[in-house]
Every structure is written in structure tokens, then in C-alpha cells.
């Protein structure tokens, strides 16, 4: 057992536990914290995959901005314990087994596809700086149009949020 493998299993376990807690928690804040746990462990996995820049962005934007916004809204609305209502019977008896079947199916195909058996090679740490530079070059050359499109998307999102939040006269 080398250090990366142990690290992978610890983070994978934390991510799955976080996702399960997200489902089980009754308080919305606890769900939010569980999701932050998932995001943190995913960030460590990104580091293992040799993508430190994406890991940092994941923490800054996802954990540091989006989830803080969620926590803020939960605090603002003073959202209490989630009330349980009757589940649809179909969802209960057919949904869960079908969901797991789908999951197993996906896992099976992933594990046996040609790309799934490839082994991550190369050393991540040595090429970090070059990778970040290369990434930005690609983002601003090859993917310039999608990049500009997302900036318009953000502008629209800001306008949308403003319109929704505006008080009615």
C-alpha cells in the first residue's frame, strides 16, 4: 500500500460518507456541511490526479462561495427540520433497486471499457506550474468562444437574481 492509494481510499470513503449524510441529515445545515465534506475530499482527489489548479478552484468557488451562499440562505430563511411527507410508493419500492442497478451498470461498463483500465501515469507535482500555464493558454485560445459565452451567462444570471430579488412596487 503506497501513500497515494491510502489517500485515495480515505478521500473516497469520506466523499461517500458525506453524500450519504447529505441524504440522511434532517437539518439543511447538516446537509450543507456534508456536501462541503464531499467537495473537500474531491479537491484532494484532484490533487492526486495532478490537477492542483482545479483543486484550488474547486475549494475557492464551490466550498468557499457557492456553499457559503447556501448556508447564508438557510440561515436567512431560518430553515428548520425538514418535514417528512408520504413518499410515493413507487419511488420507495422500485426507485431504489432500479437506481442501484443503474449504478452497477455504469460501474461495470466503466471498469471494463478501454479507458477505465488505463493507469494514471507520470508525476503530478513536477509539471504543476507548466500545467497551469498550459491550461490557461487552452482556455483563452482554443476555448475562447465558450469562455466569452459563460461571461454572458453570468451577466444574465446577475440580472436574473436582481429581478427576482427586487421588491415589488
Amino acid at each position: 500500500m503506497s501513500v497515494p492509494i491510502i489517500l485515495f481510499f480515505v478521500c473516497a470513503l469520506l466523499a461517500v460518507v458525506g453524500a450519504v449524510l447529505l441524504i440522511l441529515a434532517r437539518e439543511p445545515i447538516h446537509s450543507a456541511l456534508a456536501l462541503v465534506l464531499v467537495m473537500m475530499s474531491l479537491a484532494v482527489l484532484y490533487l492526486l490526479l495532478g490537477a492542483p489548479f482545479v483543486a484550488a478552484v474547486q475549494i475557492i468557488v464551490y466550498a468557499g462561495a457557492i456553499m457559503v451562499l447556501f448556508v447564508f440562505v438557510i440561515m436567512l430563511l431560518n430553515a428548520g427540520v425538514e418535514e417528512r411527507t408520504d413518499f410515493s410508493k413507487i419511488a420507495k419500492w422500485a426507485g431504489v433497486p432500479l437506481g442501484f442497478f443503474l449504478l452497477l451498470l455504469i460501474a461495470h461498463f466503466l471498469a471494463h471499457s478501454s479507458i477505465g483500465t488505463a493507469i494514471a501515469t507520470g508525476t503530478g507535482a513536477a509539471t504543476q506550474a507548466a500545467d497551469t500555464r498550459e491550461l490557461s493558454t487552452q482556455l483563452f485560445r482554443q476555448y475562447l468562444f465558450p469562455f466569452e459565452a459563460t461571461s454572458i451567462l453570468i451577466l444574465i444570471a446577475i440580472l436574473g437574481a436582481l429581478v427576482l430579488a427586487r421588491k415589488d412596487e
Binding site: 462541503v36 492542483p52 484550488a56 475549494i59 475557492i60 466550498a63 468557499g64 457559503v68 504543476q128 497551469t132
Partner: peptide, 17 residues
Amino acid sequence: IDIGLLFLFSITSIGVY
């Protein structure tokens, strides 16, 4: 680390919690 500044920002950004 190479991207020290980014990591510093990621740590301070979760300090809000």
C-alpha cells in the same frame, strides 16, 4: 508549493464557515 497564493486563498475562503 507552486501555487501557494491560490491555496492561501482557498484556505481563507472557507474561513467564513
